[in-house]
Amino acid sequence: MVNRIVVGAHYGLKDWIAQRATAVIMAVYSVILLAAVGALGPNTFEAWRGLFANGFMKFITFLFFISLFYHAWIGVRDIWMDYVKPTGIRLVLHVLTIFVLVGYAGWAAQILWRL
């Protein structure tokens, strides 16, 4: 057991919990979406659009996307930390990862709030 001093530095506990919390949100959403698609069978554009235009569905779909992007940040960051050792390149990859994920979040919001 490493003797850790719990003040001053971060040990990744917040990210560890966030990765799992977002995973649970996405898992629950996936089941809800699958059940909704299975029950409604939205084959037409109007039915498919109507599913996501519903206020509750829009809310949880956005929650899913935000969870997805936060989850992806932690996972992709872990990959960079495992395989990319030079600090400069790793920093650039971290920043680029954050940029695209923040961009995707804006994109997802725009898709949903145009409905």
Binding site: W48, R49, F52, Y104, W107, A108, I111, R114, L115
Partner: peptide
């Protein structure tokens, strides 16, 4: 995301 957007935007 592009596929999702296309499926929802317009007919």
């Amino acid at each position: 995301l592009w596929l999702f957007q296309s499926s929802l935007a317009t007919p």
